[in-house]
């Protein structure tokens, strides 16, 4: 159980570009506590005149990465916090954060599987924490990731995902591209729909624990389709990113 959560100043130790629109920020935390994969941290910015603004960002790192926290953030052009993180923040800077937060959208190896993860865009971030945790625990329960991106260079963590899947045959990846697919692509080229979900979930025989994260409308579509397909609602967990996630 989480006691009171307090703001603390983490130190930025690394900033790594993931895609043209996303970067990962590694923070060293003075009061680090192990999180549960899927949880988030709140980030707060304070201006010299006292003005404050705050956003929530999903944790990308596994709890096995002790003492550190990795957040992957998409830059929203007219946003307030993400442009600061992308354009102003440099390693060595301090960033006020509080967390870890949330017990609803979490998965740990102990909850078991099979595991179906469905991501749209930067909705991959909390699901990546689950996959990194699964790998760190050397878990072998079957897992499938269905990940929708608009364009090929919008796929976050692509090489790491492919490596994880190459090393571990129980983890299978399914990508779909909604605007432009890579050259020679033979996989899905459309928004996630019921037919696609049916194909991806088939070997799990509708018994999977499902985590869906992405833009609100993608999450609605996927959750409604899964319920129509007969999955028990208590096994479906969703996280909507809302209109901007800025």
């Amino acid at each position: 159980m989480q006691p009171l959560i307090e703001w603390q100043a983490g130190t930025v130790t690394e900033i790594r570009p993931e895609t043209p629109q996303t970067k990962s920020f590694t923070l060293a935390l003075p009061k680090w506590t192990a999180h549960r994969p899927g949880q988030h941290y709140d980030v707060r910015l304070t201006a010299p005149d006292g003005y404050q603004t705050q956003r929530s960002y999903s944790i990308a790192s596994a709890p096995e990465q002790v003492g550190e926290l990795e957040l992957t953030v998409e830059r929203i052009p007219d946003g307030e916090v993400s442009p600061y993180l992308h354009d102003v923040l440099v390693p060595g800077d301090q960033l006020e954060v509080r967390g870890p937060i949330g017990g609803y959208f979490v998965w740990e190896v102990g909850l078991g599987g099979p595991l179906l993860l469905v991501a749209g865009g930067s909705g991959i971030v909390p699901l990546m924490a689950m996959l990194r945790h699964r790998a760190a625990q050397r878990a072998t329960l079957p897992a499938r990731l269905l990940y929708s991106s608009r364009v090929p260079d919008g796929v976050i963590y692509r090489s790491e995902l492919v490596q994880l899947s190459d090393r571990d045959h129980a983890l299978e990846l399914f990508f779909t591209f909604t605007r432009q697919a890579p050259e020679g692509w033979t996989g899905y080229r459309r928004r996630i729909d019921e037919a696609m979900l049916t194909e991806v979930i088939r070997p799990f025989e509708e018994r999977a624990r499902v985590y869906v994260c992405g833009p609100t409308l993608l999450v609605e579509t996927v959750a409604n389709a899964l319920v129509r397909m007969g999955l028990p609602t208590e096994l479906i967990r969703t996280e909507r990113f809302g209109p901007t996630g800025s």
Binding site: A47, V88, Q94, E96
Partner: peptide, 14 residues
């Protein structure tokens, strides 16, 4: 109470 932290380079709104 709010701590006295300021985010380097964050100018807030205008």
């Amino acid at each position: 109470p709010v701590a006295g932290f300021i985010s380097r380079g964050f100018l807030g709104r205008r």
